[in-house]
Every structure is written in structure tokens, then in C-alpha cells.
Amino acid sequence: MPRSPETKYCVVTAFQRRLNAVMRRLPAHTLLETTGRVSGLPRRTPVGGRRVGDSFWLVSEFGERSQYVRNIMADPRVRVRLRGRWHTGTAHLLPDDDTTARLRALPRLNSAAVRVVGVGQLTVRVDLDG
């Protein structure tokens, strides 16, 4: 694994860019759709997380450096595709949440990947409409 957090970030994001292009096309994969803060266009990011009641929880592996988190900071209105169905909602960044504990409550495989590759994780809660 790369030595510095900056190198790790660059290597992981380059890999994810290619992987996400494939994952976005899988009909059953969970997607988070934000509005691009510069372009204003929809941006779809494959994510791992879990719906709990009327909320969807996820942990961003790079915190505020993640592009979708930056988009949420500019406009918290999002959509989440769960099991092939789109849900609208409002995203909330939770910097005081214990990401280690949160990852234990989320899907194992994704949580393990976030723990291994992540630096500066950040919990995101999406309050789903209706």
C-alpha cells in the first residue's frame, strides 16, 4: 500500500474511477446521485451502505475530499438507488459520528474496503422522503 495519505488517495481514486464506471451500470448496485457543484449535472457514485428505517447510512472513505461529499456540501438534495428503485432525500454530513462503530453496522465487504483504503472517513446520513 502507498506510504503517504496523499499517495494513497491518488492511487485509490484512480482505481475507483475505472471501477465506478462499471459499477454504475449494474442495475442492482446502490448508487448515490448528487448534483455537480460546478457543472450542475447529475453525478452518480456507487456506494455501500444500509437503509435503516427512513434513512440511508454510508461512510465516505476520504471524508470531505470525496467528490460526492463536496457536491453534498454545495447541495444536500440527493437521490439513492436501492434495489433498482430511486429515492429522493436530503444528505447530512456527520463529522462527530464514530465511523468505526458505524462501519460495524454496515455491509461487511464495503466496510472492510473503507477501513483499508480510507483516510479521514466521514459518516453520511440521507433522510429519505416518503
Rank of each mutant, 00 (worst) to 15 (best):
Thr123Ser: 14
Thr13His: 04
Phe62Ile: 09
Thr45His: 00
Thr100Lys: 09
Ala105His: 14
Gly40Ala: 05
Asn20Glu: 11
Val117Lys: 03
Arg25Ile: 12
Gly84Leu: 06
Val117Phe: 13
Arg65Pro: 00
Pro42Arg: 10
Ile72Asp: 00
Tyr68Leu: 02
Asp129Leu: 08
Arg125Pro: 00
Thr100Leu: 09
Gly63Lys: 03
Phe56His: 02
Val22Ile: 15
Leu106Val: 07
Leu94Asn: 06
Thr123Lys: 00
Phe62Met: 07
Arg77His: 10
Asp54Cys: 01
Leu94Ser: 04
Asn110Phe: 08
Leu58Gln: 04
Ala91Met: 05
Pro46Leu: 06
Ser111Thr: 08
Gly120Trp: 07
Val59Tyr: 01
Asp75Tyr: 01
Ile72Asn: 01
Leu26Ser: 12
Pro76Phe: 05
Gln16Trp: 14
Pro107Leu: 08
Cys10Ala: 13
Leu109Asp: 07
Val11Tyr: 12
Leu82Asp: 03
Val69Arg: 04
Val38Ile: 13
Gln67Tyr: 02
Ile72Gln: 00
Glu61Gln: 11
Thr45Ser: 04
Asp54Asn: 07
Gly36Asn: 10
Arg70Asp: 01
Thr100Ala: 14
Ser111Ala: 15
Thr90Gln: 06
Asp127Tyr: 03
Phe62Gly: 05
Met73Ser: 09
Asp75Trp: 02
Arg115Ser: 03
Ser60Glu: 02
Pro2Ala: 14
Leu41Gly: 05
Arg79Lys: 14
Tyr9Val: 10
His87Tyr: 15
Asp54Met: 03
Phe56Asn: 00
Leu26Ile: 14
Gly118Phe: 06
Leu109Tyr: 10
Val59Met: 05
Thr7Gln: 10
Ala91Trp: 00
Thr100Asp: 15
